[in-house]
């Protein structure tokens, strides 16, 4: 049996920083070295059960109370049904939703908008062509062409230059949106 009087050990206040320190040190170690770091964490017992035995409802077990991808989308996350990458396709449509679309061909991956005048610059109008070039979600899988015209008095419009920067920024906006869509429908980790 231990004796009644004992030397004082460090208390929790002393220990907690130790734990945090150890954790941070490891995280930093993982961050700097060339070692591959994967954000994979131990799975809950219930998750493992679903993986092993499945669920009466099919899928990964349980049902969505709200949110989450619908089952159909879950199964064709790739590009089934359309000829180009579905994330790029949906991202392009989302990003250009404020402009009238004249033609959208999901098999060839071409979206052509009509002329559009921003409300605060009624003297100029834009037209955008988007080409989706790949079935994969990649940065070079999208090309945007922007056309700009300025009013030359009356109803006459005259072509005008567009900076390449504008096209690049639009491409970036579409890629960002595609990334968001991809993340939102990725399997939850």
């Amino acid at each position: 049996m231990p004796s009644i009087s004992k030397p004082q050990r460090p208390t929790g206040l002393g220990r907690f920083p130790l734990v945090v320190l150890a954790g941070t040190a490891l995280a930093v170690l993982g961050g700097c070295s060339g070692i591959q770091s994967t954000p994979e964490y131990p799975k809950d017992e219930m998750e493992r059960q679903y993986e092993q035995y499945g669920s009466l409802l099919g899928g990964e077990g349980g049902f969505n109370l709200f949110g989450g991808p619908r089952r159909r989308e879950n199964t064709d996350q790739g590009s089934a049904g359309i000829g180009v990458n579905s994330y790029l396709w949906r991202a392009s449509l989302d990003t250009l939703a404020f402009m009238p679309v004249v033609s959208a061909d999901p098999f060839g991956g071409v979206i052509l908008t009509d002329w559009y005048s921003p409300a605060d610059t009624p003297n100029e109008r834009f037209k955008v062509n988007v080409y989706i070039l790949d079935r994969q979600l990649r940065a070079d899988g999208i090309r945007v062409a922007v056309f700009r015209q300025q009013r030359a008095g009356g109803t006459e419009w005259r072509d005008s230059a567009v900076t390449p920067e504008t096209q690049r920024q639009l491409e970036d906006a579409i890629l960002t949106r595609a990334r968001q869509l991809r993340l939102a429908s990725a399997p939850q980790s």
């Binding site: 349980g62 049902f63 969505n64 109370l65 709200f66 949110g67 989450g68 869509l181």
Partner: peptide
């Protein structure tokens, strides 16, 4: 785009 899913199982 942030999306929250709530799942219920048994």
């Amino acid at each position: 785009a942030a999306q929250v899913t709530v799942k219920f199982g048994g």
